[in-house]
């Protein structure tokens, strides 16, 4: 038994199953982060005062650059695969993975500087939001790294058996990764600048 449209596109919808699936998943992610941003707005408008300059803007900016760069390398990993440059595809995917790791290391330094001052999420509403939002975003980064590690390791065998499906998987991973980047693009000004 084979399930139709796992690789090829269904004529009337123009989509393969996985493409629609990943977009629906991202739609639910939009609502997840939507609720968190809604929380932010309500708590901020209700607060008597809102702290400014609690976070290190420069570390945040560097992390923004890192994630944007990783988005470019991710889309390049897909494009090189489309052009049948296997070695360059691997290189870009490894680069994406490394950049994601650097992002987390950077985040670790930010977190530990707060904890060193004894200022955890319990300290204030602002820090509660900061830790929860960046923490959940960080979990998404970790999730993306797990998928990339799989596609670099055991998952890469699929390319021999079914190259089309492997290209699709890289594309879907990319869609997820760009979404994680997109969330950070909003998190950065909301938490660090405003």
């Amino acid at each position: 038994m084979n399930i139709p449209y796992t690789v090829e596109e269904r004529p009337d919808s123009g989509l393969a199953n996985g493409k629609l699936g990943i977009w629906l998943f991202l739609a639910s992610e939009v609502m997840l982060f939507g609720a968190l941003f809604s929380t932010y707005i309500i708590l901020r408008t209700g607060a008597p005062e809102w702290p400014h300059g609690e976070l290190n803007i420069w570390l945040g900016m560097i992390n923004t650059f890192i994630l944007i760069a990783s988005s470019v390398t991710m889309v390049m990993a897909w494009a090189e695969l489309k052009l049948h440059n296997w070695a360059r595809h691997r290189l870009f995917l490894i680069l994406t993975f490394v950049l994601a790791g650097v992002f987390l290391v950077n985040k670790y330094f930010e977190y530990s500087s707060h904890f060193a001052k004894g200022e955890g999420p319990w300290h204030s509403t602002f820090l509660a939001i900061y830790f929860t939002l960046t923490g959940l975003h960080g979990l998404h980064i970790v999730g993306g790294m797990v998928v990339m590690a799989y596609l670099l390791g055991p998952g890469a065998i699929l390319f021999k058996r079914n190259p089309e499906q492997f290209v699709n998987r890289i594309e879907y991973t990319g869609l997820y990764w760009h979404f994680v980047d997109l969330v950070w693009i909003f998190l950065f000004p909301v938490l660090y600048l405003l």
Partner: peptide, 23 residues
């Protein structure tokens, strides 16, 4: 494709509701 635009437009609508109505 149409289905993806459709799903995302729906999501954006409810996202706006979720942002604005509680506020």
């Amino acid at each position: 494709k149409r289905w993806i635009y459709g799903a995302l437009i729906l999501t954006v609508l409810f996202f706006i509701v979720l942002m604005s109505v509680p506020m």
